[in-house]
Structures are given as C-alpha cells and as structure tokens.
C-alpha cells in the first residue's frame, strides 16, 4: 500500500513511498500524484470530505492527480515550524491520500478548512464521493458514479456510467452521453430539483416520486401501472392511499429501473 500523508506526518513516510514523494515535490506544491497499483484492473476513487467542494474529472492518463489549496496550506504550515522544534499535533485542514488494491482514497474529514479538492482520474474509473457541506462535480467519467452530499448540489456531466446520486438540501443534475446497458440508476434529494438528461435511445423503466412538485419530460414516456397495484388488489387489501404522486413509466419499451425521488422539488427528465 502506498500511503501519502499530508502534513507533519510526511516525516514518517517509509522508503517504499520515497519515489512518489519525490515525484509529488517536483510538481505543483498543491498537487499530489498517485499511481493505481494495477492499471489494467478496474480502478476506483473514493472521496470523503466534510467541508470541501469536490471536482472530479476524467482525463487521458493513468494516475490520480489530487489538487487542493489544503495541500499547499499544509505545506506552508510545515515550513513555518519553529527552528529546533517538531510538530506534535497540527490542526485540521489536512488531506490524506492513500492507495490500496487499486482504490485511491482521498479523505479530508476535518470540520475545519474548506476550499476545493480537484481530482483527475482516468475516464474508466469508478467514483464514490461522500460530502457534507459542499457540492460535488463529476465530469467525463465512464465508471460507476456514486455520489452523496448532504448540503451541497450534485452535478454529473459528460459521463456514461451508472449513476446513483443523492443530496439532502441540494439540486441533483445529471447529464449522460450514453448509458452502460443494463445498469440501474437512482437520483434523489429531499429539497431540490432533480434534473437528468439521458440519451434519446435509452431503454428504461422510470419510477418517479415527488411530494411537493411535478415531473416534466420531453421523452415519449409510456405511463404504466404500478405492478404493485395489481398485486395488492389480488390480496384484497382495497384501495391504496397515497399522500404523494408516484409515476411509473417506460421509455423506448422499457429496461433497467431508473428511480427519481424528491420531496420538495421538480423532476426534469431531458432527452439529449
């Protein structure tokens, strides 16, 4: 396992990590480059952060390149260590970047600090992001994309993987160039609009649920019965009461399930 610790802990880096550390120092001081240990195998990027805005972009390369003001801030603090002293404990704001089994993990789980974390990974990488107070942007990724934010908007553009995106208080915007066949997807938010653009030829079963809002689309959606309704009438439980509007439908004859859920907001499904 390669391990790159930003901050006062750089000193503990062992001989194994030395080449990568040198590599990092040769570059932009706010940047770390981490190689995936097995480039021919499926890659994954995991990002966990409390306060940072996260931007992930697929690029034509093979490493993960992490850039953040938090990195240079950290290095600035290291330089300001008083002569003859060493840090016992350096405050928050640090970023930890690790690689194990082809999974690069970027974590900044301090409640302090903030700013941006920009990450470039090969286009064919699966991406998993978990953030609390800021937005997430994912661009040009063809692997599975799994994003959760609490208070920030989620935006996924120019991508083609299976997407699972959720926020509590943010808008969810997704634009897919093409879609891996057979992949189920889901977009949800408590307070916000869900705005999804899908390829015109996509085959999908739609399940759209909105409490306070409406669903709009320019697709030719064939609204179908909820299969559950028939099952329930068979059990003789009578008419189902619903306090919300759930719409079921198919596009282009139907396919894998796509779930859209919002409490306060609209659902927009655009044809690309």
């Amino acid at each position: 396992m390669n391990r790159f610790l930003m901050g006062g802990m750089l000193a503990v880096l062992g001989a194994l990590q030395a080449p990568a550390q040198n590599q990092a120092q040769n570059q932009n001081p706010a940047q770390i480059t981490v190689a995936f240990s097995n480039p021919s195998q499926p890659r994954k990027l995991v990002v966990k952060t409390m306060m940072h805005r996260v931007s992930i972009k697929g690029y034509d390369g093979k490493d993960a390149i992490v850039e953040s003001s938090a990195i240079s801030e950290r290095r600035r603090r290291e330089r300001s260590i008083p002569p003859g002293m060493h840090p016992l404990n350096v405050g928050g704001g640090g970023i930890e970047v690790t690689e194990a089994n082809n999974v690069v993990t970027v974590s900044a789980e301090s409640m302090f600090g903030g700013g941006d974390i920009q990450i470039q990974v090969p286009v064919e990488t699966s991406v998993m992001v978990n953030t609390l107070n800021n937005g997430v942007n994912v661009e040009n990724i063809s692997g599975e994309i799994d994003v959760e934010s609490v208070n920030g908007p989620v935006s996924i553009t120019n991508s083609s993987g299976a997407v699972l995106a959720t926020s509590v208080n943010g808008k969810v915007t997704v634009a897919l160039d093409k879609v891996a066949p057979g992949k189920a997807m889901s977009f949800s938010t408590m307070n916000g609009t869900i705005d999804v653009t899908l390829p015109a030829d996509i085959k999908a079963n739609l399940k759209m649920k909105v409490d306070n809002g409406d669903v709009y689309t320019d697709f030719d959606v064939k609204v179908t019965n909820d299969t559950f309704d028939t099952a329930q009438s068979n059990t003789g439980r009578g008419v189902r009461i619903r306090g919300n509007k759930t719409t079921y439908g198919t596009i282009n004859g139907g396919g894998p399930e796509m779930q859209f859920t919002t409490f306060n907001g609209r659902i927009l499904i655009h044809k690309k």
Binding site: F187, S188, Q232, T235, R237
Partner: peptide, 18 residues
Amino acid sequence: ANVNVRLAAVDALRRFSA
C-alpha cells in the same frame, strides 16, 4: 451503505404488504 439503494428497498417492501 447507499441512500438510493435503501430508498429503492423501502419502495420494494410494498410488494410484501400482506
């Protein structure tokens, strides 16, 4: 671990309402 999977699973429970 995934919110969207949990959400879908709640919905699917309706199949077992009996």
